[in-house]
């Protein structure tokens, strides 16, 4: 008998608090697989944000830290500077990173902090009930934008992967998604690259994941994947935005 897939060893038996079909679950699982593969369980510290993923410390049998709203990069900075031998992963959603904690992530990039950042972009505030986020697309209906987002009052969606690619302190920036087994494999590859760059002591590595939020978008889970492929990727194109890993720093 050959095992093709089993629950990663670092995962506990706790059932996640995510809704059915949530992209957090898929990305969280990839993180757990990579922690097992790269043997980071003993030496890693995961920094969690406020949002749907704020109870993630229950799911991983390793060191976890839950930061204040938007301040995960600041907390991760402290942890990484106190002990640079640790692997530090900073995980944030779009409401947490782009709205509440924009200053923290920008300054972490400016200082070229040596940790990895995973940014989950579902174009909405998931946990609080589907309100408009800075990443909400123009025309997208949210509970605080019942007629769709318009530029007059709400401005334009923020493209974080492109923004981070312009920062000299960022060594790697890529946007991926999790809408099919092939895209999940690409997402895992991007995360692995980001993790390895941190282990090599390079600058900040950034991976943005376009993630489905079926409850917030008021769609069936399988429809939400099509929505990402057809609509979200038009505003947020996939691909590597910056790769300075080969350059001398």
């Amino acid at each position: 008998m050959k095992t093709i897939y089993e629950k990663p060893q670092v995962f506990t038996d706790a059932i996640t608090t995510y809704c059915g079909g949530c992209g957090h679950g898929i990305v969280g699982k990839l993180i757990a697989e990579l922690i097992d593969e790269l043997k980071l369980q003993e030496n890693g510290i995961l920094v969690w944000p406020i949002g749907c993923s704020c109870l993630s410390d229950r799911y991983y049998d390793m060191d976890n830290f839950m930061a204040l709203h938007g301040r995960a990069p600041a907390s991760a900075t402290g942890i990484k500077r106190a002990d640079p031998s640790k692997f530090v992963l900073c995980y944030q959603g779009d409401g947490d990173m782009v709205s509440e904690g924009m200053a923290e992530i920008m300054h972490a990039a400016i200082r070229s902090e040596k940790f990895s950042v995973i940014f989950i972009n579902n174009a909405i505030y998931g946990m609080t009930g589907g309100q408009m986020a800075p990443t909400t697309m123009l025309g997208q209906v949210a509970s605080t934008a019942p007629y769709g987002r318009e530029t007059l009052n709400s401005g334009y969606p923020v493209q974080m992967a492109e923004l981070m690619a312009t920062m000299p302190g960022v060594v790697y920036s890529e946007r991926v998604t999790v809408t099919s087994p092939a895209n999940v494999a690409k997402c895992k590859k991007a995360l692995k690259k980001a993790f390895e760059l941190q282990l090599e002591g390079k600058g900040l590595s950034f991976v943005e994941v376009l993630s489905p939020c079926p409850t917030g978008w008021k769609m069936a889970a399988t429809k939400s994947l099509d929505y990402i492929d057809e609509v979200l990727t038009q505003v947020y194109p996939l691909g590597v935005k910056k790769d300075a890993s080969k350059e001398e720093n």
Binding site: K2, Y5, I15, T16, Y18, G23, H24, I26
Partner: peptide, 13 residues
């Protein structure tokens, strides 16, 4: 198993 967000699936060959 790779798509399952809740890690509910194991696959054996």
């Amino acid at each position: 198993a790779r798509m399952c967000p809740d890690t509910a699936i194991s696959v054996y060959k």
